[in-house]
């Protein structure tokens, strides 16, 4: 090794990324400014708040909720949160009798347009494999003890279909405005590893 502290150092991975980007840019296949704009969008503009606003709207507007459950892609598009990956979004309603949990067993397909990018645990093999084999156990690890009288449904995302869980509206929120309701909606409640009524009680 001829490594010295006085020169710059790039990791092997950083070198690979630089090689890829500079070659693609040389060939006119990527535009560095456009890449910066994509990064800015996902780091700063898209995040679970988009999904929270979809959920809050569904809680206060029964017609929107019906549309959302019938055609999630179009209803979400009407609020301006459009996926560029061409995947349909199917919205799953949690009820006192049914709890929905979403996962991508193969990779980490995720409804980016409404939830931003997925957390590390969602991308991990343990979650991807256990969510299907033992959903109730996974939910317990997230602090959710789902009673035997509640059916747990697990939905495996694909490149063509992503899922968004519509959590139950927590009790005691009848007087809240749409914006205040959106504040209550957690990312995990829209993945299905969280129930908002439980969160409220534990706080």
């Amino acid at each position: 090794m001829t490594d010295h502290a006085d020169h710059s150092h790039l990791s092997d991975t950083e070198l690979r990324v630089r090689a890829l980007e500079s070659l693609l840019a040389d060939k006119g296949l990527v535009d560095p400014a456009a890449l910066d704009a994509i990064v800015d969008t996902y780091e700063n503009k898209v995040g679970p708040r988009n999904g929270a606003r979809v959920v809050a709207r569904a809680w206060i507007d029964p017609e929107f909720k019906q549309w959302l459950l019938r055609d999630g892609t179009a209803a979400i598009d009407s609020l301006g949160y459009t996926s560029t990956q061409g995947a349909d979004i199917v919205v799953l309603e949690n009820t006192p009798a049914v709890h929905n949990l979403t996962v991508c067993t193969l990779c980490s397909c995720y409804p980016w347009a409404v939830l931003g990018l997925p957390p590390a645990w969602y991308k991990s093999f343990p979650y991807r494999s256990r969510a299907v084999r033992d959903p109730r156990g996974v939910l317990r690890e997230f602090g959710q003890d789902i009673g035997d009288d509640v059916e747990v449904r697990v939905w495996d995302s694909t490149a063509e279909v992503r899922y968004l869980v519509l959590p139950e509206r927590p009790p005691g929120t009848a007087g809240l405005a749409e914006d205040e309701l959106a504040e209550l909606v957690t990312r995990n409640s829209m993945i299905g590893t969280d129930r908002l009524s439980e969160v409220k009680k534990n706080q």
Partner: peptide
């Protein structure tokens, strides 16, 4: 670098 790899993928797809 993760952000760059992510953005290149989205761009090439788009």
């Amino acid at each position: 670098w993760q952000a760059q790899a992510f953005a290149m993928t989205l761009w090439l797809h788009e």
